[in-house]
């Protein structure tokens, strides 16, 4: 790990100022000054020499109450970016109103990590692609133009949706799938002031610039997450993985259903473990809307969701697996007692 100087600003303005200015288009992950909150992803990548900040800016003592608050009002749910995953997971309003959010947090990582990790940091976690983590492999995300070792390498855990010839690294987060499904927004503080952005716009597909992972600039700080109110008590997150706990999804599905008897009035679907970014399956939602939800409809929705998927040597199984995961999630969500 490269040596860094450590700073602990006490409010947002000071933190933004501490980050200073960066060259245009420089991704936050390559900036001289980088933020840390829970540390569960940042310290990992610093030890691996992947993230190399010269200055590390600790956000944990920021005094803005909104950053650590969980609040519910008519507009919906407001989650401060410094709220720890475990606290959001257990919050009674979250459990009651948005089971899918609660599930996505509960099934992530481990008890200790959920006690540490901030919600904002969780959303910005970087891929766990083995070739990205080990700096001696060529990787376009770390070194643009170096080549992608995963395309023809051991790519069992890699993405089948949203990839490019430059990068097929999976976005491994769970929470993000619930948020994108529910049309969440993120509130971002920057040198120019504060603004909101649809969560769906936060992450960038790799295309030919896999080093650019988000729409954030280096001094931007996620302040809060806003989830609009909605009829989503019938919702869940299904995570399929190699072992029963403490593992990343091979495939997952965040599903929220608004049912009128057996008929779908509204559906929200996101897919995890199979895509390079948080992945909303809108075409599948549209296909289901107004339909009677049964096995056949669920299968049709799954086929629709994966219509554009493309697999490689070791990850092609994620296409049938992802479909089965979505079918299972849809039918299990339908069966929920709410």
């Amino acid at each position: 790990m490269r040596a860094f100087s450590y700073e602990r600003p006490s409010d947002l303005q000071a933190a933004i100022k501490a980050a200073g200015t960066s060259p245009d288009n420089q991704p936050p992950t390559q900036a001289a000054a980088q933020f840390i909150a829970g540390g569960t992803n940042m310290s990992d990548y610093m030890k691996l020499n992947v993230n190399r900040p010269e200055r590390l800016i600790d956000l944990n003592k920021l005094s803005e109450p909104a950053m650590t608050a969980i609040r519910v009002d008519d507009a919906g749910l407001h989650l401060g970016a410094l709220v720890r995953m475990a606290d959001a997971q257990e919050h009674e309003d979250v459990v009651r109103m948005f089971p899918v959010i609660c599930d996505s947090l509960r099934l992530a990582a481990s008890g200790q990590i959920r006690n540490m990790a901030s919600l904002g940091g969780n959303l910005l976690q970087r891929t766990r692609c083995e070739y990205f983590r080990e700096v001696s492999w060529p990787c376009n995300k770390r070194e643009p133009g170096a080549g992608c070792s995963a395309l023809d390498g051991v790519n069992r855990q890699h993405a089948v949706l949203g990839g490019s010839e430059a990068c097929i690294a999976t976005y491994h987060g769970d929470f993000a799938q619930a948020l994108i499904a529910l049309d969440a927004e993120v509130e971002i503080a920057s040198a120019k002031g504060s603004h909101r952005m649809p969560f769906a716009d936060l992450h960038k597909r790799p295309q030919d610039t896999p080093q650019i992972e988000t729409a954030l600039s280096p001094s931007d700080i996620i302040v809060a997450i806003h989830v609009p109110a909605g009829p989503w008590r019938r919702s869940r997150y299904l995570k399929v993985r190699d072992r029963e706990s403490y593992a990343f999804a091979l495939a997952s599905a965040a599903v929220a259903l608004d049912m009128d008897g057996d008929t779908v009035r509204g559906a929200r679907i996101a897919l995890g473990g199979v895509a390079t970014v948080p992945w909303r399956a809108k075409s599948a939602e549209e296909m289901l809307t107004g339909r009677k939800l049964d096995e056949a409809a669920a299968k049709e929705a799954a086929d629709t969701a994966f219509a554009e998927a493309s697999g490689r040597k070791h990850n092609a199984y994620k296409i049938p697996l992802g479909k089965q995961t979505l079918v299972r999630a849809l039918l299990e969500t339908q069966d929920m007692k709410v």
Binding site: R128, D242, R243, E244, S245, F248
Partner: peptide
Amino acid sequence: LQDYLVPVNAD
């Protein structure tokens, strides 16, 4: 140990 999996308690 992220990618070399061994059973956890829940298994």
